[in-house]
Design a protein around this nucleic acid. Structure first.
Length: 618
DNA sequence: TAATTGTGTCATGTT
DNA sequence: AAAACATGACACAAT
């Protein structure tokens, strides 16, 4: 695009230039730009407009950052407990009630180190999002479903089904778009204000799957860099200050605590081969607030009694997220959804339902399982769990990405109606305390062995990015993040719970999640303490050993001194003894007599005959 | 293959 | 009384 601008600024265009421009224009037509783009005066006007908009956006961002700062100042993460503590008096509710702008996940204390970088990039992304709202989708079937109020020109549906193979490399523009550096992003920015029927042009453009994928990849890369991309702003967040814990944002940054944003970009570029673009594009719908298709809803919620229009997690009504299981297939299966896929997604749901410690057994009421699968024994559970495990652990797999991406959804209508699609079976056990309910679940049908960790197939070493509880929360459509559930102070937690009408199953799960989360932290602390204690004892042992050696050395030294003294004493004794004479002037025999000293100092010569038995020769 | 290690979870006691 | 915390014990996957 920059090349094109340079070309355009050239007043004297040679015929060759004009041809080149024509070629470029033909490409840009596909990008949604009309001839007018090449009109300098028009483009100047558009530039002015764009600048003005950018200025406004800057202001808005500034305001937003200030609010975020204020919010962060109020919240402080206790490292030991993992709990948020208020460092400022104001109640969270008060702020959140007045805070219309959804807080982004840069307040997520999970990733405190990336805040600064991410924020700057956040600006860029916000600018991009407003000037070129790529991720606002034009929903062909529901064109009226628009959430982002700002310039909706050039909306692109990143999740449009695509099937054709893409000769991306042959198209220099597309190649530029594919390029990870941000220069390519400027393309849509300058195109956005084009006064032609850009939307239509974009729609035409969307027929080019390769470009779509390019754009999506660009988006997802940027979003991955900036996990809390401002494009998520339109999400309707319940008036709570914990919006930075929003699950969907978490899902976007599954490993941000280990990977800083910039390396993430690089790693993505390096990691994802071109043929995996499909997977990357699928990240975009996370921010596609308008993505909603009835067919998808039907796919996921085939059970009529389970269809829950008002359920917060349902993308059909909330326009917020899309069922994670569906999107991959949409993409990978060239936009047609097969029955097998449906059963697969359903089965996945079913397996996830069964994977709960909370006494939330769903096996009886729901029979999501495809006929080929049974949940009768441990092996089947192993299969299910490992299945989930693979979803978690395989970063390249579609499932994994989507499970994270669409992990949890928070939106304004998170009141779960009582007839949640998982409720019927839940109601059978959900009122039981967790400790009691778990064994109960292991009925003959499912035998889900919640007792004593039997079903666990997690892999701590692999660090599944979605924990089991997160899966459960997702499945039961808990409208807030697991971290939030765990780390919130009890008052805020209760407040949060009172804000959302959760059914009993959800309440049980939430309580279990909180209990397990707390206990997990406690166990970690306990082990940490234990290790510290062990190392402390080891240190103590070392010092004691050193002291022992020192004392032994001292003892040896004193022993040798004592020996020396004894020798000296023996010498003196013999000297004195040899001076003694009897009446005949003869010396006493040391074997017959010995010298002894009384307590008053007087010396006696004692015959040794009697005393030698006692061995006293001193 | 067995032993070790790290981690999550549960049960239970303590604060 | 309830919640949080502490800790031993267990299961399990990874090493």
């Amino acid at each position: 695009m920059s090349i094109m601008e340079v070309e355009l600024s050239n007043a004297h265009r040679s015929q060759q230039d004009m041809e080149l421009i024509d070629i470029l224009w033909r490409q840009d037509i596909d990008l949604g730009a009309g001839r007018e783009v090449f009109d300098l005066s028009l483009r100047q006007k558009e530039d002015d407009l764009r600048r003005k908009r950018e200025l406004e956006e800057d202001k808005r961002l500034q305001l937003q950052r200030e609010q975020e700062k204020a919010l962060l100042e109020q919240q402080q993460l206790d490292e030991e407990t993992g709990e948020f503590v208020h460092s400022l008096p104001p109640r969270q509710g008060e702020v959140s009630d007045t805070d219309a702008i959804p807080q982004r996940s840069d307040q997520n204390t999970l990733f405190p180190s990336v805040n600064e970088d991410a924020l700057s990039f956040d600006e860029c992304m916000q600018l991009l999002a407003d000037n070129f709202p790529l991720i606002e989708a034009i929903e062909p079937s529901h064109p009226s479903v628009e959430i982002l109020p700002s310039s909706s020109i050039g909306n692109i549906r990143p999740d449009m089904p695509t099937s054709q193979p893409s000769p991306v490399a042959q198209n220099p523009m597309l190649s530029a778009l594919l390029s990870p550096n941000k220069a390519s992003i400027t393309v849509p920015v300058s195109l956005a204000p084009a006064p032609v029927d850009v939307e239509h042009a974009w729609m035409d453009l969307l027929s080019l799957p390769e470009l779509q994928r390019c754009l999506n990849m660009q988006i997802s890369e940027n979003l991955d860099q900036d996990s809390y991309s401002t494009t998520t702003v339109p999400l309707q967040v319940e008036d709570t200050n914990y919006s930075f814990y929003l699950p969907e944002l978490q899902g976007l940054v599954p490993d941000m605590d280990t990977i800083s944003p910039v390396p993430l970009l690089n790693s993505y570029n390096g990691m994802v081969p071109p043929d995996n673009l499909n997977q990357m594009t699928l990240k975009a719908p996370e921010h596609n607030a308008t993505y909603a298709t009835d067919s998808l809803c039907e796919l996921l919620y085939t059970d009529p009694s389970n269809a829950e229009p008002s359920s917060p997690m349902l993308p059909c009504t909330t326009n917020d997220t899309i069922p994670l299981e569906v999107l991959p297939h949409r993409h990978l299966e060239t936009s047609e959804i097969h029955d097998s896929q449906i059963s697969l997604t359903e089965d996945k749901k079913a397996t996830e339902f069964t994977d709960s410690d909370s006494g939330v057994s769903l096996d009886t009421g729901l029979n999501f399982s495809s006929p080929g699968k049974s949940h009768q024994d441990d092996s089947s559970m192993e299969y299910c769990d490992s299945d989930l495990e693979e979803m978690d652990s395989n970063p390249g797999s579609n499932q994994s990405d989507y499970t994270e991406m669409f992990s949890l959804s928070l939106n304004g209508e998170e009141k779960s109606s009582p007839d949640n699609y998982c409720t019927p079976s839940l109601l059978t056990t959900d009122s039981l305390p967790y400790s009691k309910s778990e064994p109960i679940e292991g009925n003959s049908q499912n035998q889900h062995p919640f007792t004593k960790d039997k079903p666990r197939r997690r892999s701590p070493g692999r660090q599944s990015r979605l924990s089991r509880d997160e899966h459960r929360a997702k499945i039961l459509e808990i409208p807030f993040a697991v971290e939030l559930i765990i780390n919130l102070p009890v008052d805020d937690f209760n407040e949060l719970m009172s804000k959302h009408q959760l059914n009993e199953a959800q309440l049980v799960l939430v309580r279990d999640i909180r209990r397990r989360g707390k206990n997990k932290v406690a166990a970690q602390n306990c082990r940490k303490r234990k290790m510290e204690s062990i190392s402390g004892l080891e240190g103590e042992l070392d010092t004691l050993r050193e002291e022992k050696e020192r004392l032994l050395r001292e003892k040896a030294q004193r022993d040798s001194s004592l020996k020396e003294l004894k020798q000296q004493l023996g010498g003196l004794y013999m000297e004195v003894f040899s001076l003694l004479r009897d009446e005949d002037g003869k010396p006493y025999s040391p074997s017959d007599y010995s010298l002894q000293q009384t307590s008053d100092g007087s010396m006696f010569l004692v015959p040794r005959v009697k005393r030698t038995l006692k061995g006293d020769d001193n």
